[in-house]
Amino acid sequence: MEPDYLATVLLSSVSSASILLIATIGLAVVFGLMGVINLAHGEFLMIGAYAALTATQRGLPFALAIPVAVVITMLIGACVEVLIIRRLYGRLFDTMLATWGLSMIFYQLAVLIFGTVTPGIGMPQFGITIGRYSLAGYPLLMIAVAALMLAFVYGLLTRTVYGMKARAAIQQPEIAQAIGIESARVNTMTFAIGCGLAGFAGAVLLPIVPATPAMGFAFVVKAFLAVVVAGPVALTGSALTAIGLGGGASLTASFLTSVAGDAVFFVATAALLWLFPLGISASWRRRM
């Protein structure tokens, strides 16, 4: 095995894993802090992608289109929390069913509004060369984006007043209310942040995954499994599982076939859940 090939394979596997992590963080936040599995997560990704696409088509630079996408998905997320999620707290399967239904509605709305094909914005045409192999540059940039996103969310939840309130409202709801934390508002905020993170992911990944009504499906299964395998310490756990499972799958795909890559992902998921039925982080002391 030539060293240049090995280096490109390793680098691109880390970048593939980072892309999965970017798509997963929002789901992990909502599950970790609210115990809600948002099956419409993929569609929030899609909404973020379309929001960023529409903003760039209106002449906004791509870098500014990303915050626009975040704000739009956060607003929609807040509405969804107030109208649907709030009424179903503690009913895990009912929320899954409701958000699944919501995902179909969002999907079909996207078809009606944007049609089935919309122009992409294209991938910035830069790359790097290692030996006689070259790699697209933008997917490599996602390694840094994933690291920053993770650091931001971790800081938000552990170092800010909102973060403390959010954790208190979920872990000790009655005591939190007794000391004056309005848990309903905090939860709306948390869900909105989770959706905003999905919107960010959809927008930042737009050059790699073109905006289509069905784009959410591509991510939601693996993101969902990464969160489930992670277990109760959702954020750190999901970061670990997304990097491990996603990177392992990509590595396998490079040396064998993409089918083998997917097989590794799903077999490893099953094996981990067999070894750790409550998720790999079940016995961790960390909070996030």
Partner: peptide, 9 residues
């Protein structure tokens, strides 16, 4: 599949 880096290599 959305990750085409392996194919590209």
């Amino acid at each position: 599949v959305t990750d085409y880096a392996p194919t590209i290599q």
